[in-house]
Design a protein around this nucleic acid. Structure first.
Length: 572
RNA sequence: GCGGCUGUAGCUCAGCGGAUUAGAGCAUCGGUCUACGGAACCGAGGGUCGGGGGUUCGAAUCCCUCCAGCCGCACCA
């Protein structure tokens, strides 16, 4: 089906084209009419004509009779009010469309999304929350839109600190080490290794020797390294399950994966004449980046000790994603502090002609998670907060709230529900604010069942399902006629018809919060409707119409939440 | 110092490819309703959109400048 927005846009575009080819109608939803087109003023200015004259011409040329009434307002706005017959047709189509008007790409792209990226033998903490949640939401949205997503979890599984970690593993004994790691106490393991490394010269020496063995490919050392990696990955998977994140072990392609490609990266950069030796390190100096002293800033590909820096593996990964994986889009869901680094990596990749113009390559930047004091979110002790603890705390709160409300669900189902609510609270709060901005983590606000929260949306959905439960018999969409005589019915209908545009703009801008805003708006329209328009108590055609509106609302919320990675339970 | 991001109601945030009266949630106050889940609905108060300048018929939105805060700026990722 063609969405309402798309229909209006197509019709208007023809009329705008008639005045000037390619002129943008600037169509959007409106509180004046149902939609408004603001493109006339800009067009008139370009043409040096009076806006209202242009508006008249466009209205005359536009074929909108079966769709909407148009009114010219103010300096030249086109206020559009949808015809009831058109809304009826649109809603009837939605009722038959499992995708609710969201179209599937005819030729899907291959999209590579780099997200989460925890470090082996280190705890996942709040710092990983946003990358994981935002990345996963984007992955789900892309998949739903008909694209192929290759998730890359760029795990930190290589580097000099693995010398000390392996030595510590040996000191503990493999069994004990594995036991510690498998209960998820990665930080304790890492901290102990660090303490010994700093305090014990002999340990430090062993660690250094171990790094050499590791880099030299010593089989036993590699086996021990694998133990660390495997245990950590198993733990990460538990965290992903707890968060209901789609990442799997096969998406975990760590830094070590690129080791064999690093020499080639350096060689090819050198062959391309881009490599410069500076203070003993091999660097590329892309233009436009300066250091403190105003000198050109290098991207260090090979360090002065001959080791490779992370820039090298980032370049190798980028090249791999273009040439081996054939990605059409490369997305990096990485925090704001790394903006400059990634810009430099992208710049160097372009200089080396590894990144064709046709490939979209972008950092999906996000801001920090802040505490109530507006500083970086930390525990009261000043330590970083474990991700699992964050979720567990939310689950406990959800439990308490369920008890307070007096739910008739109990046992495993209750725990499962508490998990669903907790995840919704955390994920929605993370997704609902504009990505680039920092946001304040406030569990009380996030998990509240009132206000702009995940649980509120779940609740709206649960109330809808409750209507159908009470109905007793199975309900079929049938051929409801959408007369939309009550104002609240029409307002709800206008919301329901907007999903495709909300979804598309959310995805194309890589801004999940737009979809969040839309869903909250629909939920509010629904509650107004629900209050004003009895459903089960009404009769005949009206009852069918209202049930159909409820069904559409329920499916809209369910679909919207699901592509964000949030469950919509039937009962709460 | 250079670069980037941020500054919108008491609080948390939308809006920023310029446009018709600056929105929402929470909080506050006032109403509604013997209600299909009141975890509701309707309404009110509350903002010189950090300050100043500019472009424009029109700026929260674009440009300049200043102030405040956060982040990055060579071998840790």
């Amino acid at each position: 089906m063609t969405s309402t927005y798309e229909t209006l846009l197509t019709r208007l575009q023809v009329a705008f084209d008639a005045v000037e080819l390619g002129a943008d109608p600037v169509l959007r939803t409106s509180d004046r009419g149902d939609y408004q087109a603001n493109g006339v003023m800009a067009l008139a200015k370009r043409l040096g004509r009076a806006p209202r004259d242009v508006a008249v011409e466009i209205v005359g040329a536009a074929q909108l009779d079966d769709v909407a009434d148009v009114e010219i307002a103010g300096p030249g706005f086109l206020n559009l009010t949808l015809r009831s017959s058109f809304l009826d047709r649109q809603l009837s189509s939605l009722a038959l469309d499992p995708r609710l008007g969201v179209t599937e790409a005819s030729s899907g792209k291959r999209v590579i999304i780099d997200y989460s990226a925890p470090n082996v033998a280190k705890e996942m903490h709040v710092g990983h929350l946003r990358s994981t949640v935002i990345g996963d939401a984007l992955a789900r949205m892309y998949r739903y839109a008909g694209h192929e997503v290759i998730a890359r979890n760029h795990v930190g599984d290589w580097g000099t600190n693995f010398g000390m970690l392996i030595e510590h593993l040996l000191d503990l004994g493999e069994d004990r080490a594995v036991a510690t790691l498998s209960i998820g106490d990665l930080d304790a393991f890492y901290r102990e290794a660090r303490v010994k490394f700093d305090a014990d010269d002999a340990f430090k020496e062993r660690s250094r020797a171990r790094v050499v063995s590791l880099q030299g490919g010593d089989p036993e050392t590699l086996r021990l390294w694998h133990v660390l990696v495997d245990e950590s990955l198993a733990y990460f998977n538990e965290v992903y399950t707890k968060l209901d994140v789609t990442l799997t072990s096969s998406d975990a392609v760590g830094e070590s994966y690129y080791n064999d490609m690093l020499e080639g990266v350096v060689r090819d950069l050198d062959d391309a004449g881009l490599l410069v030796e500076s203070e003993g390190a091999l660097c590329v100096f892309p233009s436009g980046f300066q250091n403190r002293e105003g000198e050109r800033l290098p991207l260090i590909v090979r360090k002065s000790d001959d080791g490779f820096g992370y820039a090298a593996s980032d370049l190798a990964a980028l090249r791999d994603r273009v040439t081996t994986l054939h990605g059409d889009e490369l997305l990096y869901v990485v925090g704001a502090p790394q903006v400059q680094h990634l810009e430099m990596v992208f710049a160097v990749a372009r200089l080396a002609h590894w990144l064709p113009d046709a490939v979209r390559c972008e950092q999906v930047v996000f801001g920090n998670v802040l505490g109530a004091d507006h500083k970086m979110f930390k525990s009261r002790g000043g330590e970083t907060v474990k991700l699992v603890r964050l979720v567990d705390e939310a689950i406990e709160r959800a439990y308490v709230i369920l008890d307070e409300r007096g739910t008739d669900i109990d046992g495993d189902a209750k725990f499962h529900l508490a998990e669903q609510i907790a995840r919704a609270a955390i994920k929605y709060a993370d997704l609902a604010t504009e990505r680039q901005h920092d946001y304040v983590f406030d569990l009380d606000r996030m998990i509240a069942f009132e206000g702009d929260t995940g649980p509120y949306l779940q609740y709206a959905h649960a109330r809808l399902r409750s209507i159908f439960r009470r109905l007793g018999e199975a309900w079929q969409p049938g051929n409801a006629h959408f007369a939309l005589e009550a104002k609240a019915e029409r307002e709800l209908a206008l919301g329901l018809v907007g999903l495709p545009e909300a979804f598309n703009s959310s995805l194309s801008s890589l801004q999940p919060h737009r979809l969040c805003t839309y869903l909250f708006d629909v939920a509010q329209r629904f509650t107004s409707f629900y209050d004003a328009c009895p459903v089960l108590a009404s009769e005949g055609a009206l009852r069918e119409e209202r049930l159909a509106l409820c069904e559409l609302t329920s499916r809209t919320l369910e679909l919207g939440l699901s592509v964000l990675g949030i469950d919509a339970p039937d009962q709460m």
